[in-house]
Amino acid sequence: MNRPLGSRPDWLKVRAPAGKRVEEVSEALARHGLRTVCREARCPNVGECWGAGTATVILLGDVCTRGCAFCSVTAGVPAPPDPAEPDRVANAAAELSWRHVVVTSVTRDDLPDGGAAHFAAVVRALRREAPGVTVELLVPDFAGNVDALRCVVDAAPDILAHNVETVPRLYPVVRKGAGYDRSLDLLRRAASMRPSLLLKSGIMVGFGETELEVVSVFRDLFAAGCRSITVGQYLPPSKDHLPLSEYVSPERFDLLAEAARGIGFDRVLSGPLVRSSYYQSGT
C-alpha cells in the first residue's frame, strides 16, 4: 500500500553527501567548468557514485529549449555550444580516474543536429584522454533527426540511453514538446544502426500512472531494443513544478523490477532512489 502524500517517507531520506572524495570531485568539476546532474538535480546517490568513480556531466549549457513539467532546468534561449567543453570533460575524467562517465545535455532544438556532434566530440575526447573509462550517453530525442542519431551512434559509446520518462497517456502533461513514439523510434533506429550497442531507458513513477501502464512501457522498450532500464520515484524540484501524485513503496518497485526481468531485461534498477543515470557494474 502506498503512503499518502505529506511528509517524505523514511525510504526517501538520505544524508547529504560528504567526505574527502566528494570534496575532491567538487573541486575538480569547478576547476574544469563542468556541471553535473549529480549536484544540480540533488541526486541522492551522489556520494556513492562519486566514490565509485562515476559521474553524470551535463553538456551544452544550463538553458533548455523545451520546458518539461518535471524538470528544474530553465527553459529559454541557450548560448552557443562551447567547442572546448569536450576536452574539459575528458580532462576531468582522466584527472579523477573515472571508471564510468555518463554524458547528458539539455535539449537543444535550436541546433540543426540537436547537439549530436557535440556528444560525438565528447566520446572522441574521452577515448583519447581517458581510454579506460566506459562511456554512457544519455541523449535527447534530437527532434527525430535520423542523421543526428547516426552521428552519435557512429561515435561508438559503450551505452546509449534515452529516457521515455513516463507512460504515453501522461506525455501531454509531463513531457512538453516530446513524443512517446518518437522516443521509441530513436531506440529502434539506434538498435538497427549498431545491433551490439547496449540501449538503456528510464521511467519515473509517481505521476499518477498505473502499474499496467508501466509494464506496457517495459514491453514497448524491450521490443525497441532496450535491455537496460531504470525505474525511480518522481520528486518535484519545487512547488511550482508538476505535483506529485503518490509515493511509490519499495515493495512496488520490487514488483516492477520483477516484471521487467520477466519481460527479458538484462539490467534492471528499480527503487525510490534510483535515477536514470545511476550506474552499478554488473546490474
Rank of each mutant, 00 (worst) to 15 (best):
residue 217 V to C: 15
residue 179 G to S: 14
residue 12 L to S: 03
residue 14 V to M: 10
residue 80 P to F: 00
residue 250 P to C: 07
residue 181 D to P: 00
residue 204 M to E: 02
residue 131 P to L: 13
residue 15 R to P: 02
residue 200 K to S: 07
residue 228 S to I: 05
residue 90 A to S: 08
residue 221 L to C: 01
residue 19 G to Q: 06
residue 172 P to Y: 09
residue 9 P to Q: 11
residue 159 I to W: 06
residue 260 A to S: 13
residue 156 A to D: 15
residue 13 K to Q: 15
residue 194 R to K: 13
residue 252 R to G: 05
residue 21 R to P: 01
residue 245 S to P: 04
residue 179 G to F: 03
residue 75 A to Y: 04
residue 247 Y to I: 10
residue 144 G to T: 05
residue 128 R to I: 06
residue 44 P to G: 09
residue 189 R to W: 01
residue 191 A to P: 05
residue 189 R to K: 07
residue 9 P to G: 09
residue 225 G to C: 07
residue 42 R to W: 05
residue 276 S to L: 12
residue 70 F to V: 11
residue 262 G to E: 04
residue 223 A to K: 14
residue 118 H to K: 09
residue 43 C to D: 03
residue 124 R to G: 09
residue 230 T to W: 10
residue 165 E to M: 00
residue 31 R to V: 01
residue 265 F to D: 09
residue 15 R to C: 09
residue 155 A to H: 06
residue 98 W to C: 06
residue 181 D to N: 02
residue 66 R to I: 06
residue 118 H to S: 07
residue 282 G to Y: 13
residue 130 A to Q: 10
residue 282 G to N: 14
residue 192 S to K: 15
residue 92 A to G: 02
residue 147 D to E: 15
residue 192 S to M: 10
residue 54 T to W: 02
residue 145 N to F: 12
residue 63 V to G: 11
residue 170 L to K: 01
residue 108 R to G: 05
residue 59 L to D: 10
residue 116 A to L: 08
residue 67 G to V: 05
residue 195 P to E: 08
residue 82 D to P: 15
residue 44 P to V: 04
residue 40 E to V: 04
residue 244 L to A: 06
residue 160 L to W: 05
residue 82 D to C: 14
residue 232 G to Y: 06
residue 274 V to S: 10
residue 281 S to Q: 15
residue 29 L to T: 09
residue 5 L to Q: 11
residue 75 A to K: 10
residue 133 V to L: 01
residue 251 E to V: 08
residue 259 A to N: 05
residue 76 G to K: 12
residue 20 K to Y: 06
residue 55 A to M: 15
residue 41 A to K: 10
residue 122 V to L: 13
residue 184 L to P: 05
residue 189 R to N: 03
residue 88 R to A: 15
residue 163 N to C: 01
residue 105 S to T: 13
residue 7 S to M: 07
residue 86 P to W: 09
residue 139 V to C: 15
residue 196 S to V: 12
residue 229 I to L: 07
residue 72 S to V: 02
residue 253 F to L: 02
residue 115 G to L: 04
residue 28 A to F: 05
residue 26 S to C: 11
residue 150 R to V: 04
residue 22 V to S: 05
residue 283 T to I: 01
residue 33 G to K: 02
residue 130 A to T: 11
residue 86 P to S: 08
residue 247 Y to R: 14
residue 138 L to P: 15
residue 176 K to S: 13
residue 97 S to T: 08
residue 254 D to V: 09
residue 15 R to F: 05
residue 260 A to F: 13
residue 252 R to S: 13
residue 274 V to A: 09
residue 152 V to P: 11
residue 45 N to E: 04
residue 201 S to E: 04
residue 226 C to K: 07
residue 55 A to K: 10
residue 62 D to C: 08
residue 45 N to W: 03
residue 1 M to Y: 11
residue 102 V to P: 00
residue 4 P to W: 00
residue 192 S to V: 11
residue 36 T to H: 06
residue 252 R to D: 14
residue 104 T to D: 12
residue 137 L to R: 03
residue 253 F to T: 01
residue 175 R to L: 01
